[in-house]
């Protein structure tokens, strides 16, 4: 599929004894928005990490527009190489993962302004759309609420060249007003930039609001 993000026949386990993902495949078209649902512990978060190259599958591969996204670099003999596409090392991975707990995804000792500009410098328009106030950049993560931190994590993930956002329960811990703000902004940005989305949620009502297709991962 043109521009699609695909995971093909992925198997993975955290230890040898138990497979968490057993031959799982999923395909998300360019600009498509998929809600990933399934019972607790069925491996949704694990699949998200595989899609974004944070975990190396035992077998199977993740491709973007038909090209393997991650893998072992045969020439170098180095370990698992997250994101080995063209220009890697200089460009952020085109598949970006956003976690449920933003406080675990930022360096607690670093002011947020620094964290925000690690990969690229987000434009005014993105910051405004996400409701990020300039004064927050001078604060440490402990001085912001979960919703405010999550806005930073989303802005950070929207680097140029990003084609897919993988969002693992990113609004689960937020109040519904913040949830509506964040999703409306993120979806608008995705539509304008033709970014695809894989979003894990436990709420069928939220899934209906944010996705164009629902995929169920079975236990």
């Amino acid at each position: 599929m043109m521009g699609a993000l695909e995971a093909k026949n992925i198997s993975f386990g955290y230890d040898r004894k138990r497979k968490v993902l057993d031959d799982v495949s999923i395909s998300v078209g360019a600009g498509e928005r998929v809600a990933l649902v399934g019972p607790s512990g069925c491996g949704k978060s694990t699949l998200c990490k595989v899609l974004a190259g944070h975990l190396e599958p035992w077998s199977g591969e993740v491709t973007l527009d038909g090209e393997a996204l991650f893998g072992r670099d045969a020439g170098q003999g180095t370990g698992f190489e997250p994101w080995r596409g063209p220009g890697h090392g200089h460009r952020p991975c085109p598949v970006q993962l956003i976690y449920q707990h933003p406080e675990k995804a930022v360096n607690p000792r670093r002011k947020l302004g620094k964290t925000l500009t690690e990969a690229y410098v987000p434009g005014e328009d993105v910051l405004r759309a996400l409701g990020i106030e300039p004064a927050w950049s001078n604060r440490y993560p402990a001085e912001l609420s979960g919703g405010e931190l999550q806005r930073f994590c989303i802005a950070r993930a929207l680097a140029p060249g990003v084609e897919f956002i993988v969002a693992d329960e990113i609004s689960t811990m937020l109040d519904v007003v913040t949830q509506a703000q964040i999703w409306q902004a993120l979806i608008r940005i995705c539509e304008v930039r033709h970014i695809g989305l894989v979003a894990v949620t436990h709420s069928p009502e939220l899934a209906a609001r944010i996705s164009t297709r629902v995929v169920e991962l079975l236990a």
Binding site: D175, V176, V177, Q179, A180, Q181, Q184, A208, R209
Partner: peptide, 10 residues
């Protein structure tokens, strides 16, 4: 703001 109501982002 609830998704099943207006999903209104005040």
């Amino acid at each position: 703001a609830m998704p099943q109501n207006g999903f209104v982002p005040t």
